[in-house]
Design a protein around this nucleic acid. Structure first.
Lengths: 224, 224
DNA sequence: AGCGGACGTTAAGAACCCGTAAAAACACCC
DNA sequence: GGGTGTTTTTACGGGTTCTTAACGTCCGCT
């Protein structure tokens, strides 16, 4: 099952695409503006993005950049402009394909197939691996020695943040304010509890972690 | 390198932010009033704007409107008011984020990062290298001969400050007030202890440093 | 040479931070 | 409303880091 994120500010088009794509076997996640699109891309496992460049809240190119910051998901751009300049800009920004309005549904379906074929059914997903466990960011799944490891929502949020910044030191305040909210930036205590839980679930020797490292007084670091 | 336009009419705050943000790797363009801000935004390439609403010459909302007329640059608003009405007004006018005074530097830094991330301005932090060791500013990592070198928070703060000003002389007062706080500007003793530790960890011959140099009576200098 | 000031080195106690486990509070689902 | 799973508290032992102090060295000055 392929999931498509559709971003368009015109409700009729959004709805039309939603119905038609669903009829052709796609799961559809709709978004009416750039902010919602970026949010949806982080909360749903998306396989392809269909993006209208004319959005009310932010430039379409910014949406592309925002997605490309962490994901290699294929992006198909829709635009009313015929100019080749816009096309070049969008592709440079990281889009994979470009469709000019008006377009036929057949054309879009063909390009969707092409995009997901190019990406491979299970390849382009961000999958982070270590010697001990693997983290599937798209599907929010963690496996260890072939077995799926259950994560609570908070555990996943912390793990995801660390894994999305491999090798980088993530400060305690950053983790706390991203996971619990800015008001909790001082509750460093929570971190100790959850890091212990994560290590118990993921590390071979929880007392001597290899992948989830502590930098005393500064923060934590994920080592692939 | 990210360039931040700071707009505030209080000279102390302006200066404090200037120093602190510069120490954290931002290029700062200061402006003391709305007119100067709009002018500066047109003459410099700005990546993020930090705007105090209480300005002498014009309403902060007008500054937002003036910027939004031609630019999509992220705007972070500072305000002493806690009322949600002002907040809504500022965000409606086109601001991206809102910080209530008094605020911590950490919070502002986090919001700056978030703003530039949202805008897609991927701040590629530099990797500073010397013949003996390399400092990875983005990942807060120091390596020497392929091996990672552990740094304590204070050690890192001092090292980061020096490395961000390569070849430049950094005065003892500046280091002390940035790392320990303004109240410690006279405790030159701490510096001797920490410079010794840094040299022991990073210099081939700690007694004859090549990269972490002392300028007697003035301060310290990092030589790449 | 002797002296004073600034810097370097080292060590040790105090203060702070981290890991762990288990209990209490809470949320959610039937 | 009871039961399950999750989050938040609480407590404490053990480790790391910060601060302070004492002593050694270098250099310029008288």
């Amino acid at each position: 099952m392929t999931t498509v994120l559709i971003v368009d500010d015109e409700p009729q088009i959004l709805r039309a695409l939603q119905i038609n794509l669903h009829a052709h076997g796609y799961t559809v996640v709709p978004a009416a503006n750039g902010t919602a699109a970026l949010l949806a891309a982080q909360t749903h496992p998306i396989d392809v993005v269909v993006l209208d460049l004319g959005l009310p809240d932010m430039d379409g190119l910014e949406v592309i950049a925002g997605l490309r910051g962490w994901s290699d998901v294929p992006i198909i751009v829709l635009s009313a402009r015929h100019g080749s300049h816009d096309k070049v800009e969008a592709l440079d920004a990281g889009a994979d394909d470009y469709v000019t309005k008006p377009f036929g549904l057949d054309e879009l379906l063909a390009r969707l197939r092409a995009a997901s074929r190019r990406a491979g059914t299970t390849t382009a997903e961000p999958l982070v691996e270590t010697a001990e466990f693997t983290v599937d960011l798209a599907n929010k799944k963690v496996t260890r020695a072939g077995e799926a490891v259950r994560m609570t929502p908070t555990e996943w949020s912390v793990l995801e943040l660390l894994v999305r910044n491999p090798g980088r030191l993530v400060s305690q305040q950053q983790i706390l304010s991203e996971v619990w909210g800015p008001a909790y930036a001082k509750e460093t205590h929570y971190l100790r509890v959850y890091m212990a839980q994560l290590r118990r679930k993921l590390e071979r020797d929880p007392a001597n972690p290899v992948h989830l490292l502590t930098e005393a007084g500064m923060g934590y670091r994920f080592a692939p």
